[in-house]
Amino acid sequence: MNIFRLAGDMTHLASVLVLLLKIHTIKSCAGVSLRTQELYAIVFATRYLDIFTSFVSVYNTFMKLVFLGSSFSIVWYMRYHKAVHRTYDREQDTFRHWFLVLPCLVLALLIHEKFTFLEVLWTFSLYLEAVAILPQLVLLQRTRNIDNLTGQYIFLLGGYRGLYILNWIYRYFTEPHFVHWITWIAGLVQTLLYADFFYYYFLRFIGGRGVE
């Protein structure tokens, strides 16, 4: 574990907590894409299958349970909780996210580190996570401007993988044989997809107004 990866995990945890805070306390999911949340639930379900077979550390297992639990409960809240579901913007959240799942699965079957069931699903989760934010970014452009909590959620979610990139650079230089091109490229694509959002998000800080 290094400071970049710890910062990345904490940023990711913060993004999940901000979203849970918004949904649980003010019972609103306005501006949040259910489709992105569904994709993230699939990402964690396929990435953490090894939670039963391999033990890395208490921290690792605990965080996996947190991310699994939070992603599924956010989907549950947005789908089935009356008050929250009422604030869900169904008409605007129309990105065909299931069209993202199949290509990622095919790509994982073609490009992976090892052709085993767990490894292919793990690789699939990497590819899917790289594009999982697309429905949310599309929804963002359709809804005029968003509240601060949603903006902070997206900012933290985009930032965590950026910190992971620093972690991979650090591990590449400090650990022999630490080379994972698939993870690195997927992580880079994922972070670059936020570039446009980061630009407007920082403008907001400079301008001191809501995210347009």
């Binding site: 890395v56 690792n60 972690n167 650990e175």
Partner: peptide
Amino acid sequence: DTPKDFHDEL
């Protein structure tokens, strides 16, 4: 450290 096929990252 954990064997190669382990994924020790989240």
